[in-house]
Simulated scan of single mutants.
Amino acid sequence: MNLEMKFGIEMSAFDEKYLLKQLDMIAQGLSETLAPFCEVVVHDLTNPEHSILAIHNNLSGRKVGDPATELGLARITSSEFPSLITNYANQFADGRPTKSTSIGIKNTDGQYVAALCMNIDLTLFRGMQSALDRFTHIESTSIVEHLEPKGSEAIRQYIDQYAAQSGKTAHMLKLQERKALMAELKQNGLLEIKKAIETVAQHLSISRATAYLYFKDL
């Protein structure tokens, strides 16, 4: 082996170790941010028989030095394997349901050398979901009773749907978005409902005076 080849191999190994160290820092930050629900694992795919380099917020019971999973082995076999696989169903050894994401990391030669994997324990969230479903369940009944002015709910629903299109809540809408919303409410006849401006102001968490200004600018 000539010196150029040897130097290149040594530099490549150095770069991969540096990459793994930085990846571990990212994993630690993610695990601390998403604790206690998310396990974050760093895999060294250059050593598949002992691929787990670090495991933060350990929920699966695995340990450093354990082998690569099926996904890790698939990446080692083929550089064409997807780099990003998100939100797939999984489970821990004891049967707890999880939502997992696996991110493959390649070196400059296009070969997989590492993976960052996140496993979220869904046990608590499914319990919360079940409790919320029970709490919000409404028995079928023929009784009709209105506890608020007719039409106010239609305004609130329209505002929520408008905000959701941008991945926001009503309170998060910016000035221009609120003005555009007011124009749509008028166009759809929702501002003709009794106390419409008051309903809009309340749902957007702005003053009635501000809501009237938006209305006057239309």
Score class of each variant (00 low, 15 high):
residue 71 L to H: 14
residue 22 Q to C: 12
residue 183 A to H: 11
residue 7 F to C: 13
residue 187 Q to K: 13
residue 85 I to H: 00
residue 119 N to F: 06
residue 27 A to V: 07
residue 203 H to V: 07
residue 212 Y to M: 09
residue 43 H to F: 15
residue 61 G to I: 04
residue 78 S to F: 01
residue 185 L to F: 10
residue 207 S to G: 15
residue 17 K to P: 01
residue 180 A to G: 11
residue 70 E to K: 09
residue 163 A to S: 10
residue 103 I to D: 00
residue 147 L to V: 09
residue 96 R to P: 05
residue 9 I to Q: 15
residue 72 G to I: 03
residue 205 S to N: 15
residue 205 S to C: 12
residue 31 S to A: 15
residue 194 K to S: 15
residue 141 T to Y: 02
residue 80 E to S: 14
residue 122 L to R: 12
residue 59 L to E: 03
residue 101 T to Y: 06
residue 41 V to A: 02
residue 42 V to L: 07
residue 20 L to M: 12
residue 189 G to S: 04
residue 190 L to E: 08
residue 45 L to C: 01
residue 100 S to Q: 10
residue 128 M to N: 00
residue 70 E to N: 08
residue 167 G to A: 04
residue 198 E to L: 12
residue 23 L to V: 07
residue 95 G to I: 06
residue 141 T to G: 06
residue 216 K to E: 14
residue 190 L to C: 10
residue 30 L to V: 13
residue 127 G to K: 08
residue 61 G to R: 05
residue 88 Y to W: 04
residue 192 E to I: 05
residue 10 E to C: 10
residue 132 L to S: 10
residue 30 L to T: 03
residue 119 N to W: 07
residue 159 I to F: 01
residue 217 D to T: 13
residue 121 D to P: 01
residue 61 G to N: 06
residue 36 P to I: 09
residue 90 N to Y: 09
residue 11 M to W: 08
residue 149 P to K: 03
residue 94 D to R: 05
residue 214 Y to F: 15
residue 186 K to W: 10
residue 50 H to T: 15
residue 169 T to Y: 10
